[in-house]
Design a protein around this nucleic acid. Sequence first.
DNA 1: TTTAAGTGTAACCTATGTAGTTACATCTGT
DNA 2: ACAGATGTAACTACATAGGTTACACTTAAA
Lengths: 107, 107
Amino acid sequence: MRERTRPPAHPGAILKRHYLKPLHLTVSDAASGLKVSRKTISKLVNERGSVTPDMALRLSRAFGTSPELWLNLQQSYDLWRVSHESRAWERARVFMEHSRLLASNSA
Amino acid sequence: MRERTRPPAHPGAILKRHYLKPLHLTVSDAASGLKVSRKTISKLVNERGSVTPDMALRLSRAFGTSPELWLNLQQSYDLWRVSHESRAWERARVFMEHSRLLASNSA
DNA sequence: TTTAAGTGTAACCTATGTAGTTACATCTGT
DNA sequence: ACAGATGTAACTACATAGGTTACACTTAAA
């Protein structure tokens, strides 16, 4: 089982590479189409903003995806960062061992 | 395809029913084991708090689950609420129609 | 070269949310 | 009566989302 050594892709990077670029949409285009401020999209594609549930709904509608797609990308990104930026959570007591049989995959 | 008319289970309800109760763990027990305040667990179990990435890591360690389990429960709950509490996101422009072929399931 | 469009970002604002501590009233079982 | 467990209020500190306005910069077209 391999461990990730680098953060998963930021949802903003996916948005930029796989949606905005192919459709020749500028940050300004996307912002006005999604009915949010330009700042919100700019921060997102520059990996300084997050996909909130509201944004996930807008993106899903705009690009014909599920909202879960965007939230899952954000979740993976956040989880990786938090698990690597602090180890306080490792001090939590183990109440219940997980079964190795049922847990060959970390997800 | 059926639409949910009620919110998905709150992660705190799952925690209470499927983890705390079966293990006879009190809110206080869980709080001290997870190394968080009693308030944090109390709020969560009473559906007035959220599972943050940090909490997901603690819960996953304590109960032998994946952190994603908890974050996915929270995500589903949040998404349902936001999509039902506001319809502003529906004003987002459709840039790209989704393919019915690829989107027979909403997720 | 001038002009306009697109961009990133700072400053400022408001609203919300997490999480901690302390304290209190309540309830339950012994 | 007492101790344990609980929900919650009041307070704090901190972080984040998102909006508006303004500025400097780049790029491409006229």
